[in-house]
């Protein structure tokens, strides 16, 4: 079977529109995962075991089970308890929670890497713990945090096609619909593959550039 270039051009605008949704989902999911990740990292670092232990269990449980099952869980189980989310919202929330547990480990490692003396100095200067964290510790943790966060952003982007399983018409689902209507799968699925390839290779180059850029103040 040969590649039909005219067909490929025809479906391009439709796929481009779906690609925008894929990018939007990635952005929204990542925003949730950053906020949740920071929150979980702080909980897990808590000195109270009653707070740290459940946070650790939650993080390990979510990291150890498949995203697809978590999507189904939120999509099918939560409505039984009266919480009905549409497919798109479910997808964004599931991505945010799943990757939030990954980013929490990034935040934790980054915060732990800041020397203890910085906390002590901040306390000696009379800063409250919150102010010490916000103005002294967090800014110094950023160089260690940003590059791995970038890698998780790319990983999350590559996981967005899973949303097709709960009927979100993102890029992959759009390509499958085109395929089933036209009986031509080569062009739509190959275009989708190339889109993911181009975006994530481009993004990982950006992450590497960012890595060099944030390292300078830390080493200099």
């Amino acid at each position: 079977m040969r590649i039909d270039w005219i067909f490929a051009l025809e479906i391009l605008p439709v796929l481009a529109k779906a690609a925008l949704l894929t990018l939007g989902v990635t952005a929204a999911g990542f925003a949730i995962s950053i906020v949740l990740g920071l929150f979980l990292a702080l909980l897990r670092r808590s000195r109270r075991r009653a707070i740290a232990a459940p946070a650790a269990v939650f993080i390990e449980a979510v990291r150890g089970t498949p995203l697809l099952i978590q999507l189904y869980f939120i999509f099918y189980v939560l409505p039984e308890y009266g919480l009905i989310l549409p497919g798109l919202a479910t997808g964004i929330v599931a991505l945010g929670i799943h990757y939030g547990t990954y980013t929490s480990e990034v935040f934790r490692a980054g915060i732990d890497a800041v020397p203890k003396g910085q906390w002590q100095a901040a306390t000696a200067l009379g800063l409250t713990p919150l102010k010490a964290f916000r103005h002294i510790v967090l800014p110094q943790a950023i160089p260690a945090i940003v590059p791995p966060l970038g890698n998780y952003l790319i990983a999350m982007f590559k996981d967005t096609p899973l949303l097709s399983a709960i009927a979100v018409v993102e890029l992959m689902q759009r390509a499958k619909i085109i395929g089933s209507e036209s009986f031509r799968y080569i062009e739509p699925i190959t275009i989708v593959g190339l889109f993911f390839l181009a975006m994530s290779l481009g993004a990982s180059m950006l992450v590497r550039a960012l890595e060099r850029w944030v390292r300078i103040p830390a080493t200099g």
Partner: peptide, 23 residues
């Protein structure tokens, strides 16, 4: 390495599943 790390696992599975038979 770049090809398979750069694109999405689900897209790769669908590609093998739907496109390979056409070849």
């Amino acid at each position: 390495v770049e090809l398979f790390r750069g694109s999405s696992l689900l897209v790769q599975l669908f590609w093998l599943f739907f496109v390979l038979p056409h070849f």
